[in-house]
Design a binder for these strands. Structure first.
Length: 282
DNA sequence: AGCTGGTCCTGATGGC
DNA sequence: TGCCATCAGGACCAGC
C-alpha cells in the first residue's frame, strides 16, 4: 500500500517527466473514488502546463497555473504510463494525455492512467484563487512532515500531551507527524524499542527523540529501496514493482525476531494489525 | 477535546 | 471445483 515513501518515490520519478509538459486532455472513466472526482476536471486541465510535482503527506500534488490537482492513492492506487493506442485496463479511473508544451499534433505524448481497484484513492482540485494549496481542506489540518527540519522528538512529545491512546494508534492518527502508515508505524516502534501499546502521553522525551529518529531512518530506507523497483515505473508498459522493503516485524507474526530471536507477535489496535517483538520493545 | 467504531471498495484467502 | 463469508486497510466522520 502506498505510504509516504511510495508516494515520494513516485513523485521523484514523475516530476522530471511531467514538469514542463502539458495535459493534452483528461478523461474521467469512474468519478466515484474516495470523494467524487470534480466533473469539470477535464475542462480545468485541458492544455494546462504542469509547473511542479510535489508532495504533502501521502498526497501527490500537480501544480498548474490555474490550480493544484491533489492525488491520493489510498490502498491500491497507482499511476501507469501507456502508449496512446493502449487499451484501457480494468480499474483505470482517470486518463491523462501528456504531451509536449506546444504540441499541435494530438498524437504526440503518452497516456498516464490512474488505476485503483479499491477506489480508496482520490483526485481533488484546489483552484488557484483559493490561495495556497496548504489551505485545502484535506491538507489544512495535517501535522508536520517527517523530513521537516522542525520535526523531532520534542515535537512528538508536545503533540502527545493529554493523548491516552496507544503510541501506535497515535502515530497512525497522523496528529504528531504525517505519512507514517500501518507498516512503518510498527517498524519505527520496533527500531525505537517502544512497545506499541504504551500510552502516548506516558512516553518520555528521550524515547520520543529515539522514535523520531527511527521514523526518519525507516522512511529513508524505504524511499531508497523504492528507487530500484521504480526504475521501470516511468517506462511505457512498465509497472510499479512490489515494494520489497525488508521489514523487521510487519507481516512476520510467529517468525523469529531478527535481533533477539523471539517470535514476533501480532495484536489488533484500532482495528489495525500491529506487529512487535516482546523481547525488544518495552 | 479525545476516542471508538463505521464506512467506502475489491481481491485474496480459506472453509466446506 | 465452486461458492460464500471474511478480512485487509487510509483516513474521514458521526456520535458519544
Amino acid at each position: 500500500m502506498p505510504e509516504l515513501p511510495e508516494v515520494e518515490v513516485v513523485r521523484r520519478a514523475l516530476a522530471p517527466q511531467l514538469e514542463g509538459q502539458q495535459i493534452v486532455s483528461c478523461v474521467i472513466h469512474q468519478a466515484q473514488l474516495r470523494w467524487p472526482v470534480p466533473a469539470d476536471l477535464p475542462v480545468l486541465l485541458k492544455q494546462q502546463p504542469v509547473l511542479e510535482v510535489s508532495r504533502r503527506s501521502k498526497y501527490l500534488l500537480w501544480t498548474f497555473p490555474n490550480g493544484v490537482l491533489l492525488l491520493h492513492f489510498g490502498m491500491t492506487g497507482k499511476l501507469r504510463w501507456d502508449a496512446l493506442d493502449s487499451v484501457r485496463q480494468t480499474h483505470d479511473h482517470l486518463t491523462w494525455h501528456i504531451g509536449p508544451p506546444d504540441a499541435r499534433p494530438a498524437e504526440a505524448g503518452l497516456l498516464l492512467q490512474l488505476n485503483d481497484s479499491r477506489r480508496f484513492g482520490a483526485a481533488l482540485w484546489h483552484p488557484a484563487q483559493a490561495g495556497p494549496v496548504a489551505n485545502h481542506p484535506r491538507l489544512a489540518g495535517l501535522a508536520i512532515e517527517p523530513f521537516d527540519d522542525a520535526f523531532d522528538g520534542a515535537h512528538l512529545y508536545r503533540a502527545s500531551r493529554s493523548r491516552q491512546v496507544a503510541i501506535k494508534t497515535f502515530l497512525l492518527a497522523g496528529q504528531g507527524v504525517v505519512g507514517v502508515g500501518n507498516i512503518y508505524a510498527s517498524e519505527s516502534l520496533f527500531r525505537a524499542g517502544i512497545h506499541p501499546a504504551t500510552s502516548a502521553q506516558r512516553i518520555s522525551l528521550l524515547r520520543y527523540q529515539r522514535l523520531a529518529e527511527a521514523i526518519r531512518q525507516v522512511l529513508t530506507a524505504a524511499i531508497a529501496a523504492g528507487g530500484s523497483s521504480l526504475r521501470d515505473y516511468a517506462a511505457p508498459g512498465g509497472e510499479l514493482g512490489a515494494f520489497q522493503t525488508e521489514t523487521c516485524v510487519y507481516g512476520r507474526e510467529g517468525l523469529a525476531c531478527r535481533v533477539c530471536g523471539q517470535p514476533i507477535k501480532r495484536i489488533v489496535q484500532a482495528q489495525r494489525s500491529t506487529f512487535y517483538c516482546a523481547g525488544c520493545q518495552h
